[in-house]
């Protein structure tokens, strides 16, 4: 009986040591794959994986979502006041997303010249978004969590992908609440800032 116990312990040690070593190897490789030590690289993804039914000229579906300070932000609040850029990003802590909003952050003047505000939307929960956006500097626009019911707003815009993240999509909604521009972008690449600003200029104040 005692011998049996000893053999069992021996086997357990083998399993534990092997597991630990494998984990260590995987950790070291994971760090090299990303652009930065905290960024998870999902590799190349299918460019788009949903089909929006919305089109330019449609009324933008209204919604209310919590921002990372806990305030509810409602799209229709901006009616008659601001053009709104809805910037859906697939997920926090991934390569392109981690730079898209910092870009909009330093381009604030271009948005303001066109009487526009950005609403950043992600299906991540609020604590994740809070930690992630903290390393972007002080964002001048709200970041909204479309976590629960999961991705409901992304779904209503037809940009929720089959795996539960959203597309990298931009909708411009004018002051009347009408959709004026839709870009369901290749999830792997950055939408060009000048394209967005150009579209905003067309709408004007």
């Amino acid at each position: 009986m005692a011998e049996h116990g000893k053999r069992f312990a021996y086997r357990e040690i083998i399993v534990i040591v092997t597991g630990l070593c494998l984990l260590a190897g995987a950790w070291a490789q994971g760090r090299s794959a990303g652009l930065d030590k905290d960024i998870y690289d999902p590799g190349k993804m299918k460019p788009t994986a949903s089909q929006t039914k919305l089109k330019v000229g449609d009324a933008a579906p209204d919604f209310s979502l919590p921002d990372i300070s806990g305030n509810a932000v409602k799209l229709s609040e901006f009616r008659g006041k601001k053009n709104v850029i809805l910037s859906f990003i697939p997920a926090a802590w991934t390569p392109v997303c981690s730079q898209q909003w910092p870009g909009y952050n330093i381009a604030r003047a271009f948005f303001e010249e066109n009487d526009a505000v950005v609403l950043g939307i992600s299906v991540d929960n609020t604590p994740t978004l809070y930690a992630w956006t903290n390393q972007m500097g002080d964002l001048w626009f709200p970041v909204l969590s479309d976590f629960w019911p999961h991705g409901a707003v992304a779904q209503s815009y037809g940009v929720l992908r089959e795996d539960g993240v959203s597309e990298r999509a931009i909708f411009i909604v004018d002051k009347q609440g009408t959709i004026r521009y839709i870009d369901v972008h290749d999830i792997n690449t950055m939408p060009r800032l000048e394209d967005l600003i150009g579209e905003l200029k067309k709408i004007g104040k």
Binding site: V17, T18, C21, A24, G25, A26, A28, Q29, S32
Partner: peptide
């Protein structure tokens, strides 16, 4: 152990 070591070095 050898396998682990190789994995570590490669990583």
């Amino acid at each position: 152990l050898t396998g682990c070591l190789l994995g570590l070095v490669q990583g």
